[in-house]
Design a protein around this nucleic acid. Structure first.
Lengths: 204, 204
DNA sequence: GCAATAATAATACGACCGTACTATTATTTG
DNA sequence: CAAATAATAGTACGGTCGTATTATTATTGC
């Protein structure tokens, strides 16, 4: 049974520690670097011992992506849902999204990596990352809709446009942070975000 | 001699056709998929025959990235420089950037792929992509500066912020196009771009 | 504590990896 | 046309890849 309340079996604990190493490796070097051998070394176990936890490399990759998404939900998405609907929740959604990678002490965002690695390669990973990204996009759009409903955003605010631009801000903040090593990445991102939000606010 | 005016030698022609296949492969499946074997097959030649053109896989990858950048310059950057300085040139710069991937009939942008694959992996590829991205960023910032100088942009326009947001728009348009297969990607991107540019215009 | 079972390791396999080294063709030059 | 050189192919090597099979060790239930 998958009962989180009971003490995990040894196997479950090992699997968790493998996935921890896997998420960190994928965030740093991409899913292509997730080979059974290197991962076994990082996890301090044998290739075959590790492999037994996943039926194939595909399943390992999907499990790693799912684990990354689970963490995103834990540290970013679910906490934002505790904020009251409307602009405040939307701000929480976007802000938590912007900060989740450093909050998780990862080099980069595994979802972003997965997207870039598999968007031209049909297969289970492409399906998985597409679904996750679609869901995330929908949640942002829902947040915008509720901010319209609350009267804080203009009625003609384009949800799709907002989610589109929001993702761009996150993506470019990764470039600044990871490639340019610019410590002001989050400052720039927050400014862009403010500009985006302000453009939707009802005049006052 | 590297004289573009004279007829290319057979070796140069082969190298060019290899790099053509390499750029397309990198755009579709990433630089990780650029293995000597698969590339030799796509290019219709032997592994060793292909390998002789590059001293190592590193050099092959760097050469592929350089070729992609060369194409970007040809179809996007240099044409924009022919437009008069100021807002019109800036629009050309950003617009050509947005369109260069489809104009080149590539699945995605090799520079974007390289960035995502190597931003956490020190080495020659990381250095190369960092340099290229910095240069591109600087050119956008220069374009903004000239648009300030021409009096079209507000004097306090933040060049860095503009270049930061501009890259985000490009990145998110790739997500829409390649992952979501959204045909409206460029429409959304152009709207975002207009909003960015308008926020910098002097009041009138 | 012993049998049953879960978890991990050992080993082996063919496939492909990057890269030398050698052989064979094309092409150019005298 | 022959000699020299450039371009490509052939072959081989140690390594790592993903995965299957078999063995060994931990853990659990009675």
């Amino acid at each position: 049974m998958n009962n989180p309340a009971t003490k995990p079996t040894k196997g479950e604990a090992t699997r968790a520690s493998i996935l921890d190493a896997a998420v960190r490796l994928a965030a740093l070097e991409g899913f292509g670097a997730l080979t059974i051998g290197t991962l076994a070394e990082k996890a301090g176990m044998s290739k075959s011992g590790l492999f037994a936890h996943f039926g194939s490399k595909d399943e390992l990759q999907v499990a790693t992506l799912d684990e990354a998404v689970r963490r995103y939900n834990d540290v970013a998405f679910l906490p934002a849902l505790k904020v009251a609907r409307g602009l405040r929740r939307l701000r929480a959604l976007t802000n938590n999204w912007l900060h989740w990678v450093e909050a998780s002490a990862l080099h980069s965002c595994p979802m972003m990596s997965a997207m870039n690695e598999f968007d031209g390669r049909p297969g289970v990973m492409q399906e998985a990352i597409t679904e996750h990204m679609q869901r995330l996009n929908n949640e942002i759009m829902r947040g915008v809709q509720m901010t319209i409903a609350s009267g804080e955003f203009k009625a003609d605010t384009d949800c799709e446009q907002f989610a589109f631009e929001m993702f761009g801000i996150v993506a470019t903040s990764y470039r600044s942070r990871n490639l340019f090593q610019d410590k002001r990445a989050l400052v720039l991102a927050n400014r862009a975000l403010d500009r985006l939000i302000n453009s939707c606010l009802v005049a006052n």
